[in-house]
């Protein structure tokens, strides 16, 4: 009995300390919204909904999500058709993108805020395209659609309408995108470029060809030689918001990605890696290009080198 009491008393101090530490940690996560001018909070956006120089764009992947309730005034960009070419596999052409942006009432000096479902994956793709086509002020809503909804904020079903904007694709920032040949060049000539595979470890190691339920597959499994693996999801908190700058810096530094050399990110089709592209380039300020051909191109290409830790050959016997 007595011993238990003593033990309990002894335990109280560390328990208190632990509680204090936990409270501090919680408080700091609550406050530690990522410090970046490329990320806006739900509070900020709520306060700027009527700002004519702010245009909110939703890029969600599930059909009907935008239509059944979106952030008031937000314009819908359909990832499947608006932000890619529909016949040739490619990103949306500059002409079509300019038309899309103008129709959404975007001027060259508009602050574009993107958000979407699925942890902003496709919104990040949208941010990458906006950057690729030279728009100046592109930001992402921290926590995306899920956080806005979870906070019980206002949604609208009315389609917005804006006078035509004057957005023009003046420059194409082609350094934000790499093609198969570029990556192959890095791999075969052992160039000083970091390659980051942001898929799940099972995909990276070659144990599976694609996440369950996805149909667009590759003939071979594994990863690009030299690539390191940090799944995209490690960059976000449980509520979908970005981790703090310091946490992010440490996370990628742990696999040797510290911004000291250029980085190439890839995934399966290039949409999840847009998220990591955003984190590394827009939040941490590293030099990052996205390889949007990703594994569905690399794993299907004849003769390119592959590392397959799992030794799988075909998806089926």
């Amino acid at each position: 009995m007595r011993r238990f009491t003593v033990a309990a008393r002894a335990a109280r101090v560390p328990v208190l300390a632990l509680a204090l530490a936990l409270a501090l940690a919680l408080a700091s996560t609550a406050l530690a919204a990522v410090e970046s001018d490329k990320v806006v909070s739900t509070e900020w956006l709520a306060a700027h909904l009527d700002d004519p120089k702010v245009r909110v764009i939703e890029v969600s992947v599930v059909p009907g999500v935008y239509e059944r309730g979106h952030i008031p005034g937000a314009v819908n960009f359909v990832w499947h058709t608006d932000l890619v070419e529909t016949v040739v596999r490619d990103v949306v052409s500059p002409e079509r993108f300019q038309e899309l942006a103008q129709a959404a009432g975007i001027d060259n000096d508009t602050t574009v805020v993107l958000y979407g479902d699925n942890n902003n994956w496709f919104a990040a793709w949208g941010a990458w395209i906006f950057n690729l086509y030279g728009h100046e002020d592109v930001r992402i809503l921290d926590g995306g659609r899920a956080k806005w909804e979870a906070e019980g904020r206002e949604l609208s079903v009315r389609p917005p309408s804006y006078p035509r904007g004057n957005f023009e694709v003046k420059t194409i920032n082609s350094h934000l995108r790499v093609r198969l040949a570029d990556v192959l060049d890095v791999v075969t000539h052992n160039k000083d470029v970091a390659i980051l595979d942001i898929r799940s470890p099972a995909e990276y190691e070659g144990r599976i060809f694609a996440p369950e339920g996805f149909q667009e597959l590759a003939i071979r499994a594994g990863h690009i030689p030299g690539a390191v693996n940090v799944p995209w999801s490690q960059a976000v908190n449980p509520d979908g918001t970005f981790k703090s700058k310091e946490e992010l810096r440490q996370l990628y530094a742990s696999v040797g990605i510290d911004g000291s050399k250029p980085i190439i990110v890839y995934c399966r089709i290039g949409e999840r890696s847009s998220h990591t592209w955003f984190v590394l380039s827009q939040i941490l300020g590293y030099e990052v290009a996205q390889y949007d051909g990703s594994w569905t191109e690399w794993g299907n290409t004849v003769g390119v080198p592959i590392v397959n830790l799992a030794g799988t050959v075909w998806g089926a016997q």
Binding site: P63, G64, E67, T81, V157, R158, P159, S161
Partner: peptide, 15 residues
């Protein structure tokens, strides 16, 4: 008329 304000050919209202 809210989901797809203009019924442009090639587009259908969601689901």
């Amino acid at each position: 008329s809210a989901f797809l304000p203009t019924p442009t050919p090639g587009r259908l209202p969601p689901d």
